[in-house]
Simulated assay, not measured.
Amino acid sequence: MTRRFRALSLGAALMTATALSAPAALAQTAPMAGMHMMQAPPSLNLSAHGEVRMAPDMATISFGVLTEAPTAAAAMRQNAARMTEVMAALRRAGIAERDVQTSGLNLSAQYDYVQNQPPKLRGYQANNRVTVTINDMNRVGTTADAVVAAGVNQIDGISFGLKDSAAAEDQARRLAVRDLQAKAALYAQALGVPLVGIRSLSESGGYNPRPPQPMYARAEMSMADSSTPVAAGELTVRIDITGVYDLGR
């Protein structure tokens, strides 16, 4: 057998082997192609929320003592004396030490400015700021009055909150899920398809304390005056959810 004939015979054998294996390869790739062409099951993407309104059971008041004197030492000394009276008033009002926190202490030079003249030092200003948590809602107004009478001359604001928001958040979650389930059932019924089940669920929201609201001290006070009225209102705890439901065909 010549070399040329052997080469032709080997080529023919390879072609025959390839032709025989081709149907098997096609048979293996056909199911794979069919799997890629399968469509995802129909689904619903819905959102819902649950809200719970509750009366606050705590309040936070931020206030400060501002003093000014010709020297820095005098400004700080006057401020310390007045703040000592304020702390004593808080204790008499029934506020625990753990509920009182210094939130700022500042000393700054004060200048008078006249056009075409260099600034002239007028004195120094000391500012001591305190944040107080009040756990008895009946003492909010009387506490504000007590600190003003003791020397507080700046009140930044008051905010209301909940000591424990877990129960309210759980109740809002139940309401949100109930709303989501009702929506899913309604859509499935309207579309005339069975509701298979939920695929995924995500949550956002929750308890957010109300931001501080301005609170202004009265200029004139006496021990006979009634306490400053404070309306706490209600707080809203809201949970937002999004769910994906699978539908039957």
Rank of each mutant, 00 (worst) to 15 (best):
A30E: 12
V52S: 01
M1V: 13
A69Q: 12
A89Y: 10
R122D: 08
A217P: 07
I158W: 00
G11C: 01
V193C: 03
E169I: 07
A150P: 07
D136A: 10
A80Q: 15
N79R: 15
L195H: 04
L235W: 00
M58N: 01
E68C: 08
R77T: 14
V148L: 12
R199L: 09
V177S: 02
V132Y: 00
V230P: 05
A73S: 14
P211Q: 07
R3K: 10
A75C: 11
R82H: 11
S227L: 10
T142L: 12
R82V: 15
V114T: 12
H49C: 03
A109R: 14
R173C: 01
G206D: 04
R178D: 13
L107K: 05
A55W: 02
E234Q: 12
R82L: 15
T242S: 14
T29L: 14
S43E: 13
T71M: 13
A12H: 00
M15H: 00
G141M: 10
A184D: 02
L20H: 05
D145Y: 04
M37G: 06
V86R: 04
A150F: 10
S227T: 10
F5Q: 12
A224M: 10
M58H: 01
F5H: 07
A48Y: 05
T60V: 10
D145M: 09
D170T: 06
R129G: 03
L247E: 08
L26M: 14
R92C: 05
